[in-house]
Design a protein around this nucleic acid. Structure first.
Length: 407
RNA sequence: GCCUGGGUGGGGUAAUGGUUAUCCUAAGGGAUUGUGGUUCCCUCGAUCUGGGUUCGAUUCCCGGUCCAGGCCCCA
């Protein structure tokens, strides 16, 4: 038997309906804030992804050569393609550009809980704005989407200026190392490294900064900085919007292209892969040949959201109808079936030449109502509507059935 | 790339170095040609894969593969 490739999943209708529901809610919330959905190719020029992340990531991508000899890769993420699209198509659009996307990405990695080789991201990018409002808008949207999905999570916000200011006298290489340690929440290792390179005087401030949970504590450690006012303003906007967050100056994000605010969300009960959202303010457009454009965005690990939601039951509240007919009633049943469908009622009819009682049996398993059509109904021109859950039934005209079952 | 534990019908399971591999459930048909969900009967359907040990392997050993979880990584 041929099986699905490692790290991929099949999704049965129950799961798809659940996913579509969550997707729809997220799209709806994004749209309300003026973020409109876009789509980019599933594969791109390999260079799009290596241009800033180095050749190393090739090992973790699905790379291939097409018949024209082009080096291509299935997209491992969506920020780069979206910014590429912005540079290529978005020059003449009104700023700021507000886009969202929901799409699958591919990475050749070892599968784990909530980590697959084909996975879905829901993300948003706000391109061309550089303000406290813009930063806040992106964070609020991210918060809103997760909240709308219905999961429990915490939002942690940091700013790269904090650590950058504290470490401003260090060599670039040491800054990177420290940031990497902090990103992994290995503060001890960061402190040790400071000692090794002879900056013991920074150890205590570093620990205090990492432990800071209010802006006042942060600025007490690093002093006022040029961005202070904007940062205060951004948090103020979050407060006005009643967004609960935790300040965490240790958040570094693994990437060089982030420039300002960074934020992450963590869900409960997800094991090793519990980060479900990551984002921040960044500059990328210039790497793809565009003008240097301030941007902010985030991506949500949709599959992890679904894992976090767990088995919360999903019952579609739209009634499901099965038309049950005898051989005398079959032709009229076909007409009635289409009539119900025309009115938006989910309607099925036997496709297996089952006997009347077998049809009833099937209806009892999969439908909420049976519409029964036999000799009697053909003669009188009505139908019998049976409520399969309650066991009651009545004779009605087709119009009355429609009236009764329409949402 | 590394580590741990697993793999028996569609789902869940039992057992075994040796006759026809257990049971539950789901699915299909029937009892029942105008009333389902209960009941009864029937049917379908499995030892992940390759090699080794053995007279004989689903069972023991090794490799692979897939699954679950963890490490590294996480754009």
């Amino acid at each position: 038997m041929i099986q699905k490739p490692r790290g991929t999943r099949d999704m049965l209708p129950d799961e798809m309906e659940k996913r579509r529901e969550i997707e729809a809610r997220m799209r709806g919330r994004a749209r309300l804030r003026g973020f409109r959905e876009i789509s980019t190719p599933v594969f791109e020029e390999l260079e799009l992804f290596t241009i800033r992340s180095g050749e190393g990531i090739i090992n973790e991508m699905y790379v291939f050569e097409d018949k024209g000899g082009r080096s291509l890769s299935l997209r491992p993420e969506l920020t780069a393609p979206v910014l590429r699209m912005f540079v290529e198509e978005g020059r003449s659009l009104n700023k700021p550009v507000k886009w969202c996307y929901f799409a699958d990405c591919f990475r050749y990695e070892r599968p784990q809980k909530g980590r697959y080789r084909q996975f879905w991201q829901f993300g948003a990018e706000l391109i061309g704005a550089d303000s406290a409002m813009a930063d806040a808008e992106v964070i609020i949207l991210g918060y809103d989407l997760l909240k709308t999905a219905g999961i429990r999570f915490v939002l942690k916000i940091g700013h790269l200026s904090f650590m950058r200011t504290l470490l401003s006298n260090l060599a670039e290489e040491d800054k990177k190392k420290i940031r990497a340690f902090l990103d992994k929440r290995e503060e001890d290792a960061a402190v040790s490294h400071l000692k090794v390179i002879g900056h013991e005087e920074l150890c205590e401030p570093l620990i205090r900064l990492c432990g800071a949970r209010t802006l006042e504590e942060v600025f007490l450690v690093i002093g006022e900085i040029p961005e202070s006012q904007r940062i205060r303003e951004m948090f103020h906007i979050l407060d006005v919007n009643q967004i609960p967050y935790e300040i965490n100056p240790a958040i570094a994000r693994g990437l060089d292209y982030y420039t300002g605010v960074v934020f992450e969300c963590f869900a409960e009960g997800l094991g090793a892969e519990n980060q479900i959202l990551g984002g921040g303010a960044y500059r990328l457009a210039h790497l793809f040949g565009g003008e240097d454009t301030p941007s902010a965005g985030f991506a949500i690990g949709f599959d992890r959201v679904m894992v976090a939601l767990g088995d919360s039951v999903w019952s579609p509240d739209t009634p499901q109808v099965m038309v049950v007919a005898t051989s005398e009633g079959r032709d009229r049943a076909l007409v009635v079936t289409e009539e119900l469908r025309k009115n938006g009622i989910i309607t099925e009819i036997d496709l297996m030449e089952r006997s009347f009682s077998a049809q009833m049996k099937t209806a009892g398993k999969s439908a909420d109502y049976a519409v029964i059509i036999g000799k009697e109904e053909v003669t009188s021109g009505d139908v019998t509507l049976k409520n399969l859950k309650a066991g009651t039934q009545e004779r009605l005209s087709v119009d009355d059935v429609v009236r009764k079952l329409s949402p």
